[in-house]
């Protein structure tokens, strides 16, 4: 009990360092988990019965003949597809395309009252605190809150401690996104401290304002309702996030 009290009263920096060191104990298990998934997939591939393979082979031969006829037409379609992909692919389009680093989500906060995930990029990859973290389609999902050598902690927008400056794209109203508005649906957050209800309507897009540590214009979500005035004299509104923070497997980190 004395030990617990001593640990609880450690200086913030020392406690963070100890947390990261203890968390490092789990790194072999994270690696093991990843490689065992690959192994299971490979084993599944290897266990296909021979009769099934022969049947598939015959079917493939027939299909191959048909496909050869389509090959010429497909060539043109592929070229068009590439062109469309170039137009739509978010990363290639993004103004920050050279600063985006892909990371895998390796763990989630075991406690239900925090919205935190761990990713597999650390200080050796150039990670720093307060970097914006984006979903695969480029929507904001959180910010880097702690960094160790090989992994980082990302505080998701739904966390009650996450504060992000954002604006309603249509009318430029600026406010602060505060997480924790719903413990059931983590895609709902509150855009608070708006100067007025204005002419905001449900469905209007919300992006980062550019005030603070994040660059402006990162898509966040859309208004889920009309803003309402609070007793404190400012307006607030519920925002439905574009990305579901609970369903992330990979994320982009926007490096400095």
């Amino acid at each position: 009990m004395l030990l617990a009290l001593v640990v609880l009263n450690l200086p913030h920096h020392a406690a963070s360092q100890i947390k990261l060191a203890i968390g490092g104990l789990f790194l072999p298990l994270f690696g093991l988990s990843k490689s065992s998934q690959q192994l299971a997939r490979q084993a599944g591939d290897a266990l296909t019965p021979r009769a099934e393979l022969l049947r598939q082979n015959q079917e493939l031969r027939r299909t191959n003949q048909v496909l050869q006829q389509y090959a010429v037409q497909a060539d043109a379609i592929f070229r068009e597809n590439d062109r469309l992909r170039d137009l739509l692919d978010w990363q290639r389009q993004s103004p920050w395309k050279d600063r985006l680093h892909l990371a895998s989500v390796i763990a989630r906060d075991p406690a239900n009252w925090w919205q935190i995930v761990q990713i597999d990029l650390g200080s050796r990859d150039g990670m720093k605190t307060d970097l914006p973290v984006l979903a695969p389609n480029g929507e904001l999902v959180g910010r880097v809150s702690a960094v160790s050598l090989t992994r980082s902690e990302v505080m998701l927008i739904g966390d009650a401690n996450c504060r992000i400056s954002a604006r309603i794209e249509k009318n430029g109203e600026t406010g602060i996104i505060i997480g924790g508005s719903s413990t059931v649906d983590h895609t709902l957050v509150t855009l608070s401290f708006l100067s007025g209800a204005g002419n905001s309507k449900p469905g209007q897009s919300v992006v980062t304002s550019g005030i603070g540590v994040f660059p402006g214009g990162i898509r966040v979500g859309q208004l889920a309702e009309e803003p309402h005035m609070t007793e404190q004299g400012f307006a607030e509104v519920t925002v439905k996030l574009w990305a579901d923070p609970g369903a992330l497997d990979e994320v982009w980190v926007l490096m400095q």
Binding site: L3, L5, V7, L8, G23, F26, D109, P110, A111, S145
Partner: peptide
């Protein structure tokens, strides 16, 4: 109680050591 609490706090946003006392 001590190690389990420290392990879970290390992977969580909990302050380090906060899970030790409830487990105890």
């Amino acid at each position: 109680a001590v190690l389990g609490g420290l392990w879970i706090d290390a992977l969580s946003a909990n302050p380090l050591g906060v899970s030790v006392l409830p487990l105890f």
